[in-house]
Simulated assay, not measured.
Amino acid sequence: MKTFTSSLSNFALILFIVIFSAQVTAAQERGNEEPRVSPNATVSQTVGTTDITITYGRPAVNDRKIFGELVPYDEVWRTGANESTALVVSDDVIIEGNELEAGTYSIYTIPNENEWTIIINSKMSWGTQYDQSQDVMRFTVEPQEANYMERLLFYFEDVTQESATIVLHWDTVKVPIQINI
């Protein structure tokens, strides 16, 4: 019986990965095969038994002033380059105290010097086709000063069996987002 349950769990994980790949690929089709100026990246972390995956475009600073200019304050930002940044969670989670059902979502933000609004949205799209009516949740977090990072990077810190911190890091700004299972 244990072998059957284990095989069933493996099948469920494989099915999840196939569905996730299909959803993100569909959202990220762009109609040409040229190298991207802002290459895509994917980061995944398992917390307990929950898989959390983020797929995003990695723009570079390129000697530009990022926050407050290229990425204006107090305006919705697609939080990356190219397509929507995709957040996929295999099980229900709690993000900054807000319940989020298992599924695929896009991440948008509204940056500010002292506070960032994080937007979890249900619409996957190319570029800046943000639709506020598709917002699943909004919450605020405090940005932190950080070491310089040329390309936008998402990563996980403080990983335990019950929680992790998703970090958005670009230029000299780091934005932590607490996630619990």
Score class of each variant (00 low, 15 high):
127 G>A: 03
161 Q>F: 13
159 V>W: 10
141 V>T: 09
150 E>Y: 13
164 A>Q: 09
142 E>M: 11
163 S>R: 12
163 S>T: 14
172 T>E: 12
152 L>E: 01
119 I>Q: 04
123 K>P: 02
145 E>Y: 14
141 V>K: 10
132 Q>Y: 10
117 T>C: 06
156 F>K: 00
159 V>L: 10
131 D>A: 11
138 R>V: 03
119 I>M: 02
140 T>H: 03
133 S>C: 06
142 E>G: 04
146 A>W: 01
124 M>W: 05
172 T>Q: 11
155 Y>E: 12
156 F>T: 06
122 S>K: 13
113 E>N: 13
116 W>A: 05
116 W>D: 05
118 I>A: 01
172 T>I: 12
125 S>K: 06
135 D>R: 03
172 T>S: 07
114 N>P: 04
156 F>Y: 07
157 E>A: 13
132 Q>W: 06
156 F>R: 01
122 S>L: 11
158 D>S: 15
127 G>E: 01
170 W>R: 06
167 V>R: 01
163 S>K: 12
128 T>Q: 10
142 E>C: 08
158 D>T: 11
115 E>R: 13
118 I>G: 01
121 N>T: 09
122 S>H: 08
114 N>T: 14
144 Q>S: 00
134 Q>W: 00
126 W>L: 00
148 Y>A: 05
164 A>P: 01
139 F>Q: 01
119 I>P: 01
124 M>P: 10
139 F>S: 00
162 E>L: 04
136 V>W: 03
170 W>V: 11
133 S>K: 09
172 T>P: 01
149 M>S: 13
133 S>H: 08
122 S>N: 15
137 M>V: 08
127 G>L: 03
162 E>A: 06
133 S>A: 11
146 A>N: 03
139 F>E: 00
143 P>M: 07
157 E>P: 06
122 S>Y: 05
114 N>Y: 09
166 I>P: 07
142 E>R: 14
114 N>L: 11
142 E>Y: 07
114 N>C: 00
135 D>Y: 04
144 Q>E: 13
115 E>H: 05
140 T>L: 01
150 E>A: 15
153 L>C: 14
114 N>Q: 15
147 N>L: 05
121 N>M: 05
127 G>D: 09
126 W>V: 00
164 A>H: 03
123 K>I: 07
120 I>K: 02
162 E>R: 03
165 T>M: 14
163 S>G: 12
157 E>Q: 05
130 Y>P: 04
137 M>A: 12
130 Y>N: 03
170 W>T: 10
138 R>S: 05
156 F>D: 04
144 Q>H: 07
124 M>H: 11
117 T>M: 12
147 N>H: 04
149 M>K: 15
139 F>N: 00
125 S>D: 15
164 A>G: 06
114 N>H: 12
128 T>K: 07
161 Q>A: 15
138 R>N: 04
154 F>Y: 15
130 Y>F: 11
162 E>N: 02
157 E>C: 03
168 L>Y: 09
154 F>C: 08
119 I>Y: 03
149 M>E: 14
145 E>A: 15
162 E>Y: 02
